[in-house]
Each structure stands twice: as structure tokens, then as C-alpha cells.
Write a protein that binds this DNA or RNA. Sequence first.
DNA 1: GAGATGTGTCAGGAATCTTTGACAGGTACC
DNA 2: GGTACCTGTCAAAGATTCCTGACACATCTC
Lengths: 120, 120
Amino acid sequence: MPEVPPPAPTGDELLKVLSALGNPHRMRIVAALMESRNYVSALAREIGMGRPLLHMHLQRLEAAGLVVGTLELAQDGKAMKYFEVAPFFYELTPHVIARAAATITETADRTDRTPKEEAK
Amino acid sequence: MPEVPPPAPTGDELLKVLSALGNPHRMRIVAALMESRNYVSALAREIGMGRPLLHMHLQRLEAAGLVVGTLELAQDGKAMKYFEVAPFFYELTPHVIARAAATITETADRTDRTPKEEAK
DNA sequence: GAGATGTGTCAGGAATCTTTGACAGGTACC
DNA sequence: GGTACCTGTCAAAGATTCCTGACACATCTC
């Protein structure tokens, strides 16, 4: 029988996904990677964007689990990091949002919080 | 026969929805309104948030079509704006994102752009 | 009129995100 | 050695978002 796990993402997870996808550039990046996987430098040229910037956006997408990057060594020995989209699937409905909202940890509020700070 | 229109949101629309939902407070607001519709001041007290701030968040959610607000006059003549969640439904998959990305207008990049500026 | 409750808006500062240029390290080729 | 690719990171500037404390207006009650 087909496995159809009910989509019930955690608040933090959904938050990362939505904020990652809610950006024009990152949407276009996903679209570009849909056509063909690519490595950072080439992708940067393709969509006309600085590499440091693309690198950051890719990191954000990867952290959300929307794309995956693998460091491969080409035949000439050069190390290239290829990215491709991950087969994600999320349903956005009031119920899903409400359920997710109930499991939001304070950690997700601020982007990054040094654990040291919390022990005030 | 049941109507099942294929979800193919435009880039700008999806962008507004995702950025609106990709925020802890706005998620909680939707969750709170799921239980019961409410008016601004009461909701502000319920979730412990300043009214001006709540007002802004509600505006953002309404602009994305996720909640609807109706100005009603109570029996005592007071005007109260009741908000309730709209029955939205979005599917998030690589394909949907790719398709939406193709229809992103420059207008969606910046939050608001005075039409006057565009005529450069 | 004074007080309580509703609505909405505005200016200003705090906190984040976005963007760029410069730097460091690696391998291959002329 | 010098050039051309690749990778990654950092600091500093720019642009948005988020948040708060006033302010103005309206209605009902005391």
C-alpha cells in the first residue's frame, strides 16, 4: 500500500521553509535548479548574481531542506559543489499553520542565538 | 461534480503568502483566529502584543488574502473590526515554485513602489 | 466633562536581511 | 611563475522589517 504520511511539519521547520521560499531570488534559484543541477559559480553566472550572495541564499535553502549540495571532484581535480532541489512537499492550510504555530520554539524567533546568551 | 481547480498561484501572490506566513507572530495570529474570530484590541490582549504592531501584521495577512477583516458596529455603536481566517490552500512543491518564479514581476521585489518612480 | 473602549496612523529607533568587494585556499594548464 | 578556474568566509554598507510610544477621532457611560 502506498505510504501517505500526513503532513504535520513542526513550527520551526515550516518557519524555515516559508521564510526561505518567501524571497524572489531564492524562488528563482529553485526554479533554475529544477531545470538542471548546477554548481555555484555557473549558477551565479546563469542568474546574474554575485557568488557570495548566491552562496548565502543556497545555504538558507539547504538549511530548510529544500535543496541539497554535494561536493564533487571533477576529472581535472577541481572541487565543485553541485546543488539540486530536494523533492519537498508542503500543504498550506489554516489547520496546518495553526498546528505548526503551537510548536514554535523561542529559538526560531531569532535567527541565531548563542546558547551562552540565554543563560542570563 | 466537485470542483478541484489546479493550484497555480502567480509568483507575486505566492511570494506575499509565503513571506506573510513565514513569521512566528503571524503564524500565531492565524492560529488564534482559527479558534475564534476576534477584533483587534481583544486579540492584541489575548496574544500579548501592542495594537499598532498587531494592526500591521493583520494588514500583511489580509494583503496576502489569508485573513479577512470586516468592520462591524456593535449594539452600543462602537465600531469593531473583526478578523477571521480565510479558507486558503496552497501546495508547496518544486514545480509550483518553479512555475511561480517565472511570473514574478519587478513590483514584488520591493514591498511598495510608488508608480511614479517606475516612470523613469 | 472625564473616563473607558474602539478604530487608525505616524515618526523614530532597534533588529534583520540583503548585497558587495576583498581575501584565502585549492588544482590544472601554459 | 603566472593565469584561470573552483571553493569558502569576512566585514561593512544598504535596505527592510519589526516594534513602541504618541497622537487623533468616535461612541457610550457616569
